[in-house]
């Protein structure tokens, strides 16, 4: 394939991945990996290497907007990163001993099941605000953010231990499969901790960069970061992430949830396809 064509396809796909990734709290690997492997014929190892760079790009690019706009909950993010980083390290150590296709089948199916609570709450603006107590109170897991029309919305997190457990699983999957596992992070915060949708997706966005950075060293050392593949991915994803972040700041929670439900279905199907040997 001619380089110019290769770079152009990859750049456009990465912009698209950055826009959607930044809105729903994913890293964009779900778009970047199949474009690289199925469309451009790139080896899956280089595709995962590029995907890790994409995740870090989406995370940092979008978070630079969200954190300034006070939508990301820094405390929730940092507390949960304890679980995602340790999970990612354990996952990376176990990767050689675990059958990845079985894992993909199990977790793809779990994601399909979590579509049910996500779809049932379509249209919901704010979750019922739980009382701040126990561990959540000690950790200060509450906050407020400015809604699109300027009104300040406050919220409290609940069930931090369940959230932490979900994040251990998300971290393990990141280390095992080389993915950002943003979908699991959003679900942990949305379903378990009952955070507003925007706070869940932007805090997931904030966290995936750290999870991906934890596995980046290994992929770099293995020689799986190909500059010709990674350069257009990084440039495209950064452009896309900033565009997506500007959209989210003005969008409403129900809109974000609808987009998340669609992306969740795509991620689940891709994982199940991957378990059947399709290189996505």
């Amino acid at each position: 394939m001619i380089v110019l064509e290769f770079v152009a396809i990859l750049l456009l796909a990465s912009i698209f991945a950055g826009v959607f990734g930044s809105i729903v709290g994913l890293g964009g690997g779900v778009v970047v990996i199949p474009v690289l492997t199925l469309l451009l014929g790139v080896n899956i190892h280089f595709a995962i290497g590029a995907s890790i760079v994409a995740i870090i790009g989406t995370s940092s690019g979008a978070a630079s907007v969200y954190v300034k706009d006070r939508i990301t909950n820094l405390r929730v993010g940092m507390f949960l990163e304890l679980a995602t980083t340790s999970g990612a390290i354990v996952g990376a150590a176990l990767a050689a001993y675990v059958d990845s296709s079985a894992l993909e089948l199990i977790f793809g199916s779990i994601l399909l099941v979590t579509l049910v609570p996500t779809v049932m709450r379509i249209g919901e603006d704010m979750p019922k605000n739980p009382e701040l107590k126990g561990l959540s109170k000690r950790l200060g897991l509450s906050g407020s953010y400015p809604e699109a029309e300027g009104r300040e919305v406050s919220y409290n997190a609940t069930r931090p231990k369940t959230g932490l457990f979900g994040m251990v699983i998300a971290g393990l999957l990141s280390g095992l499969l080389g993915i950002g596992s943003g979908a699991f992070k959003v679900i942990s915060m949305d379903v378990a901790m009952k955070l507003p949708m925007k706070v869940s997706t932007t805090t997931s966005n904030f966290m995936i960069g750290v999870t991906a950075a934890a596995s980046a060293g290994i992929y770099y050392a293995r020689g799986d970061v190909d500059p010709v593949v990674v350069a257009p991915v990084a440039l495209g994803i950064l452009i896309g992430a900033v565009i997506g972040a500007r959209f989210l700041v003005r969008a409403r929670n129900p809109t974000i949830r609808k987009i998340f439900a669609v992306v969740l279905a795509v991620v689940a199907v891709e994982m199940i396809l991957a378990s059947q040997g399709v290189a996505v």
């Binding site: 001619i2 380089v3 790139v42 280089f46 970061v225 190909d226 500059p227």
Partner: peptide, 19 residues
């Protein structure tokens, strides 16, 4: 060689880019 340079990604061996 810009226009004609081919990038045959599938042929590059895994682990080719150690730094």
């Amino acid at each position: 060689i810009s226009g004609a340079l081919t990038y045959n990604a599938g042929s590059i061996p895994h682990g080719n880019f150690t730094v």
